[in-house]
Amino acid sequence: MAYTSIGGTTAGSRSEGVELLKASRFLFDRYRQLGQVTRPTVVLPALIAQTHTLKEVAATAHPSIRQALFRLGSRYAEYVGWLVQESGDERGALWWTRQAVDLAAAGGDHHLAAYGLVRRALVTLYRGDPEQTVGLARQAQAEAVPQRVLGLAAQREAQGHAIGGDHAACMRSLDRARSLLARSASDSDEPVIGTSNLTDPVAMITGWCLYDLGRPAEAAPILDRELANISPQALRTRVRYGVRRALAYAAAGEIDHACHLIRGLLGDAVTVNSATIAIDLRHLTRVLGRHSRNAEVRALSPDLATALRLVTP
């Protein structure tokens, strides 16, 4: 039997399956790096092709390598789902998340189903639906899954409570997330589930949540501190939280500083072209619009409007 991969046509022996697994694992990290510095549509075709290759080869692969191929294929599919959401296609994102769960199950990994709920909760979070976000995150925490998945689910639950205005429940969920993520460890060579670009994800999400809870003056310095720890190469991550930081300062009344911060991000926002980042850009536009007499706002407005038009699907 032969299969076609990005590198060409190869016979499906065990040794070749092992080589495909090694090459695809190496490529996965490169694709994640590329996804940080360019728009989703640049990366998606290759990612989708590689996902299909892993799935097809795994179906007839030697039993000793089959499950590992399916599991890696599931991580490709999960990443595709995230980038599809970044491109503004929620339905497509949910479809790819289901594919990821199915591929993981075929590979003997039933934990990704719980993380699939966390991913679905990200979609409802950006829809502004606290009830579904909290419900999906709690459903994920009801599963017997690794500490990292539980921690990410608790973190998502906190974000759901934040958009619902429940400060106490949000802080309890963040405390639980910190405890769970501190206890999580993996010596596996499989890709890390969730972001790998935040040194302290719970601290960053605390700043994120405080803004949603109507406490922007508390959120801003936390976002300042955590943004300083993000690698310059993690451009998409820097823009995501940088826009949220500018939004926090604007909502706290520091309009000139907010304008200064966002001006330095507009070019990068267009480069990564994220539908989810565009949501915060729209919020920022509305906040700054209340200060239309401010000289910094007047100077920024044309560039902000252009950037928003370019990143909106």
Rank of each mutant, 00 (worst) to 15 (best):
E143K: 14
E157Q: 15
R156W: 02
L180V: 10
V149C: 02
G214L: 09
L174E: 02
D200K: 06
L174A: 06
E218M: 10
A153D: 07
L181K: 10
E190F: 11
H161R: 09
L213S: 05
R156K: 14
A185S: 12
P216Y: 01
N197Y: 14
Q147E: 15
P201I: 13
R172K: 12
S173Q: 06
H167Q: 13
W208I: 03
S196E: 11
C170W: 02
A220F: 04
L180G: 05
Q147A: 15
E190M: 15
R148Y: 01
A185D: 06
L181S: 12
P201Q: 10
R148Q: 12
P146C: 08
L213F: 08
R172W: 03
V202K: 02
S173T: 06
P216C: 03
H161V: 07
E157I: 11
R172D: 15
L213R: 00
P146A: 11
S184I: 07
L210S: 00
V192M: 12
G160A: 13
T206A: 07
L180C: 08
G165C: 11
D166P: 11
A182I: 00
L174Y: 02
T195F: 05
Q147W: 04
D212V: 02
L198Y: 12
T206N: 01
V149E: 09
R172A: 14
S173M: 06
S188E: 14
G165F: 11
G207I: 03
Q159L: 13
A219W: 03
L152H: 09
Q159M: 15
G160C: 13
L210A: 00
A182L: 07
S173G: 10
A182N: 13
S184F: 06
V202M: 04
C170N: 04
L180R: 10
G151K: 07
A182F: 00
R183L: 11
T206S: 12
E157L: 10
L210Y: 01
A219G: 05
Y211R: 11
P201Y: 05
G160F: 11
C170G: 07
M204D: 00
W208A: 02
A185L: 03
I163N: 00
